[in-house]
Write a protein that binds this DNA or RNA. Structure first.
Lengths: 343, 343
DNA sequence: GGATACTTTGAAATCGATTTCAAGCATTGC
DNA sequence: GCAATGCTTGAAATCGATTTCAAAGTATCC
């Protein structure tokens, strides 16, 4: 069947004007129950469904939200997407996803969909583009939301975890376990997350009166290979550290690989702590201690806020959400033999 | 800036008709290099971008492809999505994703986007809906592609792996390792994959003249919990099996959990083999032997075919792709001590 | 130089819905 | 019974691009 049914066809068959059919569809204006029934009957008979392009053009909205993530196959991001998707669908919105593969250009290119009015709004998860660029987009009147970073603009809802806070907790936990020489593998330099987690690490050391050694910090770029190479560089320095705090689980995975190759026992010889609670972490041997963020809920909450913002044009004062994370203490950071730190 | 620039604005400023601007944009018809330059200059000056809804309405296409997967956070599916997305974007198509969470209703609902002309075509990954329903959609003139299953319709491109073939290989490998009592944990009953993998399992047994014991088969529904419960049921039967073939890695994960709880050593006391090569598998202890499918390439190939099909209306004879998988033999299925099977 | 063919450009129709504005109709009140 | 009021419905404009068809302009050939 190539001939698609249009609103005029329905109108004809029902003996009414297209306007009336439209009113029935959008059950807005008052339509007599009698005509409504008559029209509905024809709609069902013909299996009519309104053409979305026409609808979008006239109503000036697409009921579509874009989501930009660095890597869809990282469970951290896919859980956020799930939260976004479910809420969006329940509110009749569609979701278009862009996996940038950490490519800033792709991020920018995708944002063009706002200008072409292909999407009504966009959610940036762990954005790479600059704050200025984000602000510029918002100033153009577009609706944009951010996960994982705070942007100061009355029209940009943000949701983020308190990186500094949980980083302090992680380091404190390691100190309580008896560690004093704690290495830190940081993520990509341009990410705020990296910056904040480092800040938490430093603060915690200060709190516990542990001197800070810059040589104990290496960059791992938030991926497995980066983590692997970072820990090898740390090993090669021959420093006496007994614990490592990796700024995410992916990099901790690299630490596990290096330890396995060098026959270093976790946690007996090296305690490891990650961040993100990736799907994978609990299945490692030993299970990886990590920081759990309510990813699904974060996505859900933000998209809800975003949709609200698109509907009412008022800017709610409740715009920035700082979510608490919980530490998941597992085998990788608890030394069952309570072996003392060889300071 | 609320005032968006329209094609007439550009036309005005450039002193030409909208039609000419349109021709420049779609660089189709012959436009004098001089006028083209003049128009392009204005387009760049104003930062004009055509409204997509208007474009879609007039051109009767949306340059958007829908993708339906059961679970976006399963790396098996997200890798396929990546392949689809990358190729699609390179061909100027957008991708809308639907995570059904194994919900058949959501699958059907999403397919409505075809009828409303919100998407030009759709890719179903491991579909739950019946073949009849799929055929019906194709007969309505919609473009639809399938990953993981074969549908016989000249307009439906399919890509799938030869389940029977690799299942035979897996079981043969286990036999070569000395196993004769091999349990099988199957996936959801309605999936063809389950059916075919079981067939491979049975065929292999026959080939090796190993008697078939129905009690050695349990269903695990393709998820971790299902695998966990299935292996416990098998244990409780007190049968002397020494190897288990799980129809996917997720269920194998459940097997690992059960073994860890019951203190059963893998692979010494129980060899384990999975399917999918999930991100997680190689990081398990011991690393999980599994079957690797070229997920990314499969997604990429299928979407390419789908787009071709939407452009030329001819049906290419090259429609069904059976992809070969490779066995990844890792620690979970190789008994380093070469301990004999206690048959 | 003028007829012919070809190229470039513009005016207007079109895609398929929504929405405004006015007309038609029924109801109410005096 | 007639004017005023309130609902329901329809005709036509609209959203912003593309595309058809015709007109204008230019090149070619005899």
């Amino acid at each position: 069947m190539d001939t698609t049914i249009k609103i005029v066809d329905v109108a004809h068959r029902a003996g009414v004007a297209p306007a009336t059919v439209s009113r029935v569809l959008n059950n807005s204006s008052q339509v007599t129950p009698k005509t409504r029934a008559k029209v509905m009957k024809i709609i069902n008979e013909l299996g009519y469904q309104p053409n979305s392009a026409a609808k979008n053009l006239r109503s000036q909205k697409t009921m579509t939200i874009g989501v930009i993530v660095p890597d869809i196959s990282n469970s951290y991001f896919s859980e956020i997407i799930k939260g976004i998707e479910n809420i969006a669908y329940s509110k009749k919105y569609k979701v278009v996803i862009c996996d940038t593969a950490n490519n800033e250009e792709k991020e920018l290119e995708f944002l063009n969909l706002l200008t072409t009015r292909t999407i009504d709004g966009v959610i940036l998860v762990a954005p790479m583009i600059s704050d200025e660029e984000i602000l510029k987009i918002a100033d153009h009147g577009h609706t944009i939301g951010i996960v994982g970073k705070q942007i100061d603009h009355e029209r940009i809802p943000c949701i983020l975890t308190d990186n500094v806070k949980f980083s302090i907790q992680v380091v404190s936990h390691l100190v309580v376990q008896g560690h004093r020489n704690i290495a830190f593998i940081n993520g990509s330099a341009h990410a705020v997350d990296s910056y904040d987690r480092l800040e938490g690490y430093l603060k915690a050391l200060r709190e516990h009166h542990i001197p800070f050694h810059p040589e104990l910090i290496e960059n791992g770029d938030f991926n497995e290979t980066g983590g692997y190479e970072a820990i090898l560089r740390l090993f090669d320095k021959k420093l006496p550290f007994t614990a490592v705090f990796a700024a995410n689980d992916e990099m901790a995975l690299g630490v596990y690989r290096a330890c396995s190759e060098r026959n270093i026992q976790i946690p007996m010889q090296l305690a490891v702590f990650g961040v993100d609670n990736n799907r994978i972490s609990r299945y490692l041997t030993p299970p990886l201690s990590t920081v759990n963020q309510p990813k699904y809920a974060m996505g859900a909450l933000l998209v809800e806020k975003l949709i609200d913002m698109m509907h009412e044009n008022e800017f709610s004062e409740n715009r920035v959400f700082k979510i608490d994370s919980e530490l998941l203490i597992r085998g990788s950071s608890v030394n069952r033999t309570q072996q003392k730190d060889q300071d």
